[in-house]
Design a protein around this nucleic acid. Structure first.
Lengths: 197, 197
DNA sequence: TTGCTATCCGGAACGTTGTTCCGTATCGTG
DNA sequence: CACGATACGGAACAACGTTCCGGATAGCAA
């Protein structure tokens, strides 16, 4: 209470340099730990990897859910930002494929988050909207480019694709071994199939 | 290890009377606590309500998941067994409606179980099969009776209905207040609508 | 009924977790 | 360079799941 919410990403005015270092280290470490052991991983594991004390974590993220939400937004930003970068470097179809794989990698690090989202914690309320708001335009642009280039059909719905891959990438047991990537390739092939029509 | 799995329900040969009492008390208490606070509720809360020590719980249910699975099977049995009872007491349509409400009540007590099922704990592996194996025939019989009586259409798929109600009854926030019941009534009305055809 | 033994019970004790607290170290500024 | 505000680290606390064991009890045999 009284503590203004700590925003992830770009440094804020008035934040001391060492504080910003701690925040960055925590976000990086938390992202790695969440990817490895899910969002229920012990806090001490995060603080150890970040090389900070427990007090430092709770100073910047008063509740555990604040850290999770911050990491989530951080990664959503990074993933969405990859879309224009890929579009500039590769041809439209290649950029689309690579970004979908990138997106699948993002989803794969979200073990346990689905449950957290339905836990009723109001800190998470804004996350689904944030998710759609950033990813749908990113994918939409990639799809448009590929369609304009004649590489894929033009009636693909971005949000449909995001949900489909979201469901593909998250559920499986630990023996994935390329399954998700193959399924994405198949989806893209499906998009290419209708290119002529 | 070496401890044979403790079966819920009917007493086994060779179990001492006091042990059976403890098992019953634990299953009853756990069912209430799970319904109230979800499957993640503290173990001490269960032992306290059962009037039993912690050691007693772990003697009969070596892992937490064993207790959850036992309660689950226990309640599946009870819910499935209600079908023929209702069928004998009420007319086919009334029996069907009442059982679906009963089933929704069962689902409503399963907060957190969905997440547990996807946790990879092998103790839970048999539960989905157990679920379908007991509920599908129970509902199927009720549907057939109602269809034969001309009260509802005859092409309803039991498993479809179970899944639909399963999804209806579980997700909402805490402000349900009869929503599930209204939706079930609506579903039954839908079944009645096609009765003539 | 009485006594014996395998079994079971209760709750204290252990290790791990999330979270709080505070003495100390550091940053930014005059 | 010195000072106040801020942030740091890790010890300390509470709550959790789980283990352990001395004492109690049920079931059986005589």
């Amino acid at each position: 209470m009284g503590d203004e919410p700590t925003l992830a990403g770009q440094p804020r005015q008035g934040v001391r340099a060492d504080a910003q270092r701690s925040i960055d280290a925590l976000l990086t470490a938390a992202a790695e730990v969440f990817a490895e052991d899910g969002v229920d991983a012990p806090v001490r594991q995060i603080t150890a990897k970040a090389g900070v004390g427990a007090g430092t974590l709770y100073r910047h993220f008063p509740q555990r859910s604040d850290l999770i939400a911050a990491v989530f937004r951080h990664e959503v930003d990074a993933c969405a930002a990859a879309a224009p970068t890929l579009a500039a470097r590769y041809d439209p179809l290649e950029a689309l494929t690579r970004w979908l794989q990138r997106f699948a990698g993002f989803i794969a690090t979200k073990r346990g988050l689905s449950a957290a989202l339905h836990s009723g914690d109001t800190t998470y309320d804004s996350l689904p909207g944030y998710f759609q708001q950033h990813f749908e335009p990113a994918l939409s642009a990639l799809l448009d480019s590929a369609a304009k280039a004649g590489a894929i059909r033009s009636d693909a719905d971005p949000w449909d694709l995001l949900r489909a891959i979201g469901n593909l990438a998250v559920p499986a047991a630990d023996d994935d071994s390329g399954h998700t990537q193959r399924m994405i390739a198949l989806l893209v092939d499906g998009l290419r199939f209708g290119a002529g029509a």
